[in-house]
Design a protein around this nucleic acid. Sequence first.
DNA 1: ACTAATTTGGTACGTTCGTGCCAGACTGAG
DNA 2: CTCAGTCTGGCACGAACGTACCAAATTAGT
Lengths: 193, 193
Amino acid sequence: MTAATPKGERRRQALVEAAADLLVDGGFDAVRHRAVAERAGLPLASTTYYFDSLDDLITAALEFHAGVELAYGKARLAELDSCECGSEAFIDLVLALLLGPPAGERDAEAVLLRYERLVATGRRPYLRPLMRKLSGELHGLLIDIFARSGRSVGRERVEELIALVDGAVVNALIEVSPDPRASARRMLAKALS
Amino acid sequence: MTAATPKGERRRQALVEAAADLLVDGGFDAVRHRAVAERAGLPLASTTYYFDSLDDLITAALEFHAGVELAYGKARLAELDSCECGSEAFIDLVLALLLGPPAGERDAEAVLLRYERLVATGRRPYLRPLMRKLSGELHGLLIDIFARSGRSVGRERVEELIALVDGAVVNALIEVSPDPRASARRMLAKALS
DNA sequence: ACTAATTTGGTACGTTCGTGCCAGACTGAG
DNA sequence: CTCAGTCTGGCACGAACGTACCAAATTAGT
């Protein structure tokens, strides 16, 4: 169901954003009708009124969130015009694009979330087109960044580096006190040296 | 709770194996009291009698399954004595250890499950010691295999290759018709050439 | 202002889940 | 054989869930 009135549209959007928030800090399992309604300050029934099913709501939330992520990536890319491309800063930038902005204390959890989402997509075929689009644009962004910093690389090499980062992350998750970003940084530094 | 009678021990073990089966073909979410009891052909209450909580049951199931996986790995390693180490066969062997034996039609799903489990571990700190142990032994096995096939490599290089495989897999999950094993094979072949 | 369409929000139904309960059946040590 | 300790299994509770329902309130088109 799509809203037909301005106020309705605002309400619908509030639900989408609430769902996206829940998705970010609780994973797919946290996106429930009741939780979304409560976070948006709206009654339970509004979630079923504006969205045919929970999957619909999740899709909308992911779509919204993907937009936010890409906007962040493009902003960081724009900053790079001033091209302070030390190896250290460059690696941090790539990690920020792939893992999100560093989240301090909660970084391990934040990164974990990204991979939970990625893996959970495997069980939700209806999200694949969306994830493919996001992933494609992200790869494009990375190629741009490599080019703009003087390190020209092909698409294949970029995919290899992404795989390296992703693999380092999932393997870091089982450490006693996981620091997936640090593991990824180590791998990336070695591969780029 | 631990069983004190032989028949009780057999029952307990039946529950563990049923839980491991469910874990393998449905992920952590499939391991429920009722499902385990039904698959084992035992009443619901037996699951709470022998295991203090669901987490207890899951831990036992994962432990059991890890044993099975490692046994498979060691068996494949033993076969290698006859050292038919063509590049193709070698890569398939490494993939069999990391992704499990090829599962034909259902391969994508089987591989997905492994990574669901890996990521889900991030939310279950009590499983980390177990996963670390399994992961450590698997790494050791891989080093052995590399050595035995004439390709001597250090631990760091092995971890790099594992990350490459894992990253290739998680990135393959969002393809229109995912074939994670093929993606991993491609990456591995390139890295080993 | 009036009517029809849309939106609202409280409520309820049917499932599934983890877990607790307990009377009865079984089993092994004396 | 006896009986304390162990095990069995049917059952019920409370919570959380997705979703359906519907009378009342609001809004939009004329």
